[in-house]
Design a protein around this nucleic acid. Structure first.
Lengths: 338, 338
DNA sequence: TTGAAAGCGCTAACAA
DNA sequence: TTGTTAGCGCTTTCAA
C-alpha cells in the first residue's frame, strides 16, 4: 500500500484538502503547516498518484510520439530531441510505432481521444489519403504537431525540412559531377516529403534538360533488393542515384558491392539520410542530412507551448534546413574523411 | 466533453454498472442488453477513460522502458522488439532516456513507485554501485526486468547475451589472424556487460600468453577521439582492437582513416555492435552482433508473464547468444560482401 | 487559515 | 438480470 494524502492528513491531524493545498504550496496555508506537511511527506517518501490527479484535472502529463519505425536513425535522433524537452517540462513520453501500417496508425491514434495523452507528435505513415483518424483527433482538440512527415490537409503546426530545395541541390550536385542519367528512388504512397523531394529532383533535371527516371521501392527488403538489382544490372543503368529515404540507399551499396559496380566511377550515389557513420561507408556516402534532433526538439517545444498556454496551433510551419554533405560517393577526389 | 458510461447509461435508461458490465461482456448481462449497449457505444464512439479505470483497478496498462540512449542502434532495435510485444498485449510503452546519468536514472525510477507504470524494462546506467533506487523499486513490488545491462545485485529476471564467450571468441579470432598486441577499449563504471567482455578478452589473451592492454574511453566524444588518437599514433600502437561497445568503435575507424592506418593490414578491428551497415563500412567491420530485437522481445515477454500471472521474477536469466560476423576489418581476404 | 464535501469516470460488492 | 452504492486518490469550491 503506497502512501496517500489521506494517510498524511490522518497522521498529522489535518484535512486532506489542507494537505493537498500545502503540497501544492498554496498561499492559503500557513508556513508552519506547509513545513510540517512537506517534512512528513518527504519522510514517508510520498509520491502523488498520477491517475487520481489526471482524472480530476483532465490532464495526463503524457505526450505521444507516433513514428513509422525506430530503426531508422532519423527517428532515433528525433526521439532523443523530444524526450529531452518532455523530461525538462515534467512530461512523460509514450512511443508508438506504426511500422508503415495505416490500420495500426488508426487504431493507435483512435485511443488518444480519451485522455491518455495530452498532445501528440507524429510522423505519418505513407498512405493514400486515409486521414480521418487524424482529422478526428484534431477535431477533439488534442494538440497535434507533425514533424518530418506531415499531413498537409490538416491545419496544424508542423516541423519540416526544406525537402524541395535539398533535393534540387542533390540533383544539381550530381549533374555538376557529370551524371547524365540520374534515377530517383521513390516510395509509393502520398508522403509529402517524398513528393517534395521528387519535385526538387524533377525541377533540377528539367532545368538541365536531362531525362527523368523514377523507381519505386517497397517496404519489403527482399523486393527492394530485387528492384534495385534489376535497375543496376540492366543495360540502361543510371550513372547517378538519389535515394529518397534512408532505407532505399543501403541496398544500392550492397548491390554495387556485390556486382563490383564502382562508386563513384560507374555510378554516383547520394542519399537522404541521417546516418552518423555515412562517412565511414565504403566509399563514404554523400548525404542530405536532416537535422533530426533539432526537428524533434522544435516539434516538442511547439507542442508544449500549445499545452501550456492554450496557444493556437493553426498553420505554424517551421522549416529547418537540411545539409548536403559531399563525400566520395559522388566525387572522384576524396573531399572529406572525417 | 467526451462520452462516458454515465451518458450511455442515461440515454439507454440503464444503470452505469450495467453498462460497465455489458461493455466488459460480463455473463451477468443479457444478450439483448449487451447488444444495445455495444451498438450505442459504437455509435457514440465511446472510448473508456484510462485514468478512471486505472485509479479503480490499480493498474495503468503502461510499461516503462528505461535506456541509456536511443541513438545506439542496439537500443533502437530493442525498443522495436519491446513495443511490438507491448502493443500485442494492449499495453502502452513509455520511453525514458538516462543519457548515462545516474541522477537522472534515479529521478526517473523514483516516479515509477506510484503507479504510472505497471512494470519496468531497463538497461542500467554505467555507474559505481548506486543501486538504491533499483532496490526500492524492486521492494515496491513493481516487476522489473533487466536487459543487456543488468544490475547483478538485484535478484530479478534478466535477458542478456553471452558476453564472456563472445569476447573470448573475438579475441581468439584476432589471435588467429595474427594479432599480437590486442587492446580492449573499455568504459569506466561497473557495467556487467563490460566486465564480462573484459574477462573474456583477458582469458583469451592469457590462454595464448599475450600481453593485455585495456584503454578506458569516456562518454565525451572529443575526449574519446583524443584518447584513441593517442593510442593509435604512439610507437607501441596495437595491431588489434576490440571495441567493447558501439560508440567506441566508430572513432577508431575515423582516426585510422585520418592517419592512413590501413585496416586490416596495420591494425585489425572488431567491435561489439548491432549496426546493420557494418558490412558497408570501409572496410567492412567484423562485429560481435547482439540479438537486440530478440532480447527486447524476450524481456517484454517475461515482464508480461509477470504482470499477467503474478509470476515470480526471481533469478530467471535468459541468455541469447551473440554472433561473430567476420568481415574485412580483421581478415585480409574479403570473406563477406553481402 | 483550515475543513467538509462533492465529484472526476469507472468498477465491484451487494441488494433488489 | 439489473440497480444502488461506495470508493479508488486527488482537487476544488464553499463554509467554518
Amino acid at each position: 500500500m503506497s502512501v496517500t494524502i489521506k494517510k498524511i492528513a490522518k497522521d498529522l491531524n489535518l484535512a486532506v484538502s489542507t494537505v493537498s493545498k500545502a503540497l501544492r504550496d498554496s498561499h492559503e496555508i500557513s508556513a508552519e503547516t506547509k513545513a510540517r506537511v512537506f517534512e512528513y511527506a518527504a519522510k514517508l517518501d510520498y509520491i502523488p498518484n498520477p491517475y487520481a490527479s489526471s482524472l480530476k484535472k483532465g490532464r495526463s502529463g503524457n505526450i505521444a510520439v507516433v513514428l513509422p519505425e525506430v530503426a531508422d536513425s532519423f527517428f532515433s535522433a528525433a526521439i532523443n530531441g523530444i524526450e529531452s524537452i518532455a523530461h525538462d517540462k515534467g512530461y512523460h513520453t509514450m512511443v508508438y510505432l506504426t511500422h508503415e501500417d495505416v490500420q495500426r496508425e488508426q487504431s493507435i491514434v483512435r485511443e488518444f481521444r480519451n485522455g491518455r495523452v495530452d498532445g501528440v507528435l507524429m510522423s505519418i505513415v505513407a498512405n493514400d489519403e486515409k486521414y480521418e483518424h487524424l482529422t478526428e483527433l484534431y477535431a477533439n482538440k488534442i494538440p497535434l504537431v507533425f514533424f518530418d512527415r506531415v499531413c498537409e490537409s490538416i491545419e496544424t503546426a508542423s516541423v519540416v525540412t526544406n525537402d524541395f530545395d535539398s533535393a534540387y541541390a542533390a540533383a544539381k550536385h550530381l549533374i555538376d559531377q557529370g551524371s547524365k542519367r540520374i534515377a530517383f528512388l521513390s516510395m509509393p504512397g502520398e508522403l509529402a516529403i517524398i513528393k517534395h523531394r521528387h519535385q526538387g529532383y524533377t525541377q533540377a533535371l528539367r532545368d538541365h534538360a536531362l531525362p527523368e527516371r523514377v523507381v519505386f521501392c517497397t517496404d519489403n527488403e527482399d523486393e527492394n533488393n530485387a528492384i534495385i538489382e534489376q535497375l543496376l544490372t540492366a543495360s540502361d543503368r543510371p550513372d547517378g542515384i538519389i535515394g529518397s529515404i534512408e532505407k532505399v540507399t543501403m541496398p544500392v551499396y550492397k548491390i554495387c558491392h556485390a556486382h563490383r559496380i564502382a562508386i563513384p566511377y560507374d555510378i554516383k550515389i547520394i542519399g537522404f539520410s541521417h546516418l552518423q557513420i555515412a562517412s565511414l561507408l565504403d566509399p563514404p556516402l554523400t548525404t542530405v542530412t536532416q537535422p533530426a534532433f533539432e526537428m524533434g526538439k522544435a516539434a516538442a517545444t511547439i507542442l508544449f507551448k500549445a499545452l501550456e498556454k492554450k496557444y493556437n496551433l493553426k498553420n505554424e510551419r517551421i522549416i529547418i534546413p537540411s545539409v548536403l554533405n559531399v563525400r566520395a560517393s559522388t566525387h572522384t577526389m576524396s573531399i572529406e574523411n572525417k
